[in-house]
Design a protein around this nucleic acid. Structure first.
Lengths: 176, 176
DNA sequence: ATAATATATATCAATTTGATATAAAGTTTG
DNA sequence: CAAACTTTATATCAAATTGATATATATTAT
């Protein structure tokens, strides 16, 4: 699934600018997907060429013109087609776990600090998800993404808490 | 953290070819990191230029020569330096959750099928991790990566199991 | 009053992805 | 036992993505 498809998905919710789409990704998709301007703007351009979105310019006096994109019928069909044929994959890229894999190469205080940092960040993510979870009127599919995020984030936090003190001890304990 | 650093990490364990390094990533890192030949071979080439790894050719009669790489002292220093300065980040890219976000655009049987596929794959990952967990003599850092994987994967499985039947019902129930 | 953040588009070098090519050995299966 | 598939091993490449940077003004916070 490329950024193009994600943009079609975003535009299936409401008309939006590239900037709006990035914000949507940051708000609603933040715990499972991300995309930057460097992939969103080219995606919108190509989708326009392909007739899957249309673009109207809204002039603004003192800012760059807004380019407001809308999903066309062809675009909606392409979105559904793409979604139906996308395998439900999932891929984690954890520099944190790479660091833990090589924990024995880190100075002990740095290891402890890293565990704490990861814990702090995970707790921050948990808070964001809990806030989202309190909102009402969410469609069930979106609710599910939040529940899934809550479940996995809580599990991660508990795991780090469990090893936060013992891991640094064990890593250096046996060998120094 | 780029593929170059990961290759240094791999070579800190033992000398290896590019092919070996990819296998290591697939075996030990599979649930939190991946890299293909397209990034590993250029990484090794650049590391050689920089003097961080050395390369000896092992001729083979009927196959391409093996290029066996070793970490140099400069390489080991660069690895530690890089690890110490890498923030312990983590990023999920879940096409599965994107699909669930847009669940209302999927035909009901396809939605059910996707939940089942994700469940099957997660159970397969769990099995791999459980097998790794049974091995003895693992360093504590590596053990931790397995425990973390077990915890988050179990949480994901339980979440999918909990919604496996209700989600398709809820998605279409209210509107069709 | 000043600093910081938000609005909005755009570009770009460096890197990564995912596939493909090559070629032979070893292993499985009907 | 022959055919099919997997493993060993390196290499390349187009297309996509990353992450940063540039530009310019309005709004909000300190």
């Amino acid at each position: 699934m490329d950024t193009r498809t994600l943009c079609l998905g975003a535009l299936s919710l409401c008309d939006a600018t590239g900037y709006d789409i990035k914000k949507l990704f940051e708000e609603a998709f933040s715990h499972f997907f991300s995309a930057g301007y460097g992939s969103i703007y080219p995606a919108l351009e190509k989708l326009t060429e392909e007739g899957k979105v249309s673009c109207r310019r809204q002039e603004q006096e003192k800012r760059p013109d807004k380019k407001i994109y809308s999903l066309t019928e062809a675009g909606r069909a392409a979105l559904v087609e793409e979604l139906v044929n996308t395998p439900p994959r999932e891929k984690l890229r954890s520099e944190f776990l790479v660091l833990m894999f090589f924990a024995h190469l880190l100075p002990p205080p740095r290891l402890t600090e890293m565990l704490q940092q990861r814990l702090d960040e995970s707790r921050a993510v948990l808070k964001i998800l809990e806030d989202l979870d309190r909102r009402e009127g969410m469609p069930p599919g979106i609710k599910f993404t939040i529940q899934y995020g809550l479940a996995t984030t809580k599990a991660a936090i508990e795991c780090i808490e469990a090893y936060h003190e013992s891991l640094p001890r064990e890593v250096y304990g046996g060998h120094f």
